[in-house]
């Protein structure tokens, strides 16, 4: 996709992919044939630039045919370089950082008002934590006791200019979110077994919102992309793509 489009957010899409897979193929209830089903669990990709992995998951989940992914980023496609309402399964357009949590708070308030059992998941970036509006949303979520809201931070420690804590220190995320009244848990965000078991264990009757700090590796799965800020926004060359595919194929075989 990114190779064909000639650009894309490779690193962040790979770091957050395991989280998306655990949500869409284990934790969440939804119906791709009825994307507006009122009782669906909601997912908001607040770090909207990790869109390539998100589109792959939506296609695999049945929201649109996987061959459409080949048109990603091309003229007049539904698959823009950030999620929009044109792509089936997208709840809200994102890309400008710091917006998703507030929208998730609104969805969670509506769920409480209606006594509906759905959950709202919001995936944020660690660099995104510098946006002030996130903390407005964080405050509102605990004030309104939104136990049906799950915030997740893709904590890959890198952003476009370098190490997150060098650009703007966000450590300690755990202390900050706890102080804002959230129940914080940490997990290896690239360990599928750990993710699946964590989402199963999050209590639904909580009076406090949940925050999952998912420790991830940017560019996960491809040796020469892992932990390299260069890959925040970069398309692979043909040779690099070939090498990456061979590495991922090998990992798949080793697992089986």
């Amino acid at each position: 996709m990114i190779f064909q489009a000639g650009g894309g957010h490779t690193g962040g899409s790979l770091s957050s992919l395991d989280i998306l897979v655990a949500l869409y193929f284990h934790a969440m209830r939804y119906d791709p044939k009825d994307p507006q089903w009122s009782l669906r669990d909601r997912f908001v990709l607040s770090k909207g630039h990790s869109v390539e992995g998100f589109y792959c998951v939506l296609a695999e989940a049945g929201y649109f045919p996987p061959p459409e992914l080949d048109g990603y980023g091309t003229f007049n496609t539904r698959l823009y370089g950030h999620p929009t309402m044109k792509a089936p399964g997208v709840e809200i357009p994102t890309g400008a950082l710091g917006h998703g949590l507030s929208v998730g708070v609104g969805m969670a308030i509506a769920g409480k008002l209606d006594g509906a059992a759905y959950r709202v998941y919001v995936l944020m970036g660690d660099g995104e934590q510098a946006e002030g509006s996130i903390w407005e949303g964080a405050m509102a979520a605990s004030h309104h006791a939104l136990g049906n809201l799950v915030g997740i931070i893709d904590n890959n420690n890198l952003q476009i200019s370098g190490k997150v804590d060098a650009v703007m220190r966000v450590a300690s995320l755990k202390d900050r979110w706890s102080a804002f009244g959230w129940k914080v848990v940490e997990v290896d965000g690239n360990d599928m077994v750990a993710l699946v078991s964590l989402f199963d264990r999050l209590p639904k009757d909580s009076s406090r919102p949940h925050l999952v700090i998912a420790h991830t590796v940017k560019g996960k799965g491809v040796s020469f992309m892992e932990n390299k800020p260069d890959w925040h926004h970069r398309a692979p060359t043909a040779d690099e793509l070939d090498l990456a595919e061979r590495e991922l194929d090998k990992a798949l075989k080793d697992r089986d």
Binding site: V105, G106, I109, A110, G137
Partner: peptide
Amino acid sequence: GVSAGLARSGK
């Protein structure tokens, strides 16, 4: 933002 979320949930 919260208002947008409320609207996406039928309010």
